[in-house]
Amino acid sequence: MDYFLELFLGGLTRGSIYALIALGYTMVYGIIELINFAHGEIYMIGAFTGLIVISVLTLLGWNTVAIIIIAALVAMVYSAAYGYTIEKIAYKPLRGSQRLSALISAIGMSLFLQNYVLLAQTSNFLPFPNLIPEFGIVKPIEHIVRSTEIVIYIAAALVMVGLTVLIKFTRMGKAMRAVAQDRDMAMLVGVDVNRVISFTFVIGSSIAALGGVLVASHIGQVNYYVGFIAGIKAFVAAVLGGIGSMPGAVLGSLVLGWTESFFTGYISSDYEDVFAFVFLVLILIFRPAGILGRSQTDKV
């Protein structure tokens, strides 16, 4: 039973990490139906920014909790600026054209950002200090779950709830839903579509940066390539849960995390990815729109 619980929590950690990235993916897709492949790179840039801020503030001798909070905030703001700029440079000029063009532009942006960080920073792995303190209440179960992991669970849950509230109950959320349903009509009734889309990218990017800082604290290292693999997995999770749906992204991430964890634990980690993707295929065969996705007919 202990073993089951350990695997369950391991899967929960993986799932929550995927969820922090998948939420941004799914939000952008929900509004402009674009798979933003550069999202994983925003996550990576967030982690790098966090590392730089942490290094500077550690030199100044600040309190570690203050450092990690400030690092996360700076990373979120900085990455949000990146998200905003990427949308303006790479996606907005292509908004009227085919979806494929924007998709290729997104892949190009992803490669550009990876190589930019590779050249501007380093190709080496860099150590990322774990500044999240060990909570007293976690002590007895420390061999199973650490406080960093608990912070990741809480962050993923809070972000999911926050985004759902934002979209369901605020004025901006209403505008987002309107743009998602019919961009032209929304524009006609006076919704500032450009602002709504920019806002979506800013929020999505800052969530990715938060994920970047937390995950880097958990695994203790960053390099320019971390965003790519995490991004692919998070994308799978978003599709699994039903792309465009917030609870779907989290559910899909958790299902993927648990699938990987239990499969590794009880069968073999050799075919972990194979099993995860077989599972994805099975779900898409029976529910083509994902677990929580609503199937919709194409707008003609």
Binding site: G10, T13, I229, S261, F262, G265, S269, D270
Partner: peptide, 19 residues
């Protein structure tokens, strides 16, 4: 066992080693 390079977390395989 073979592990997946680049994964975000290896706790499952670590638990397996422990077990």
């Amino acid at each position: 066992e073979g592990i997946t390079p680049g994964a975000v977390d290896y706790s499952a395989v670590v638990q397996k080693v422990k077990r």
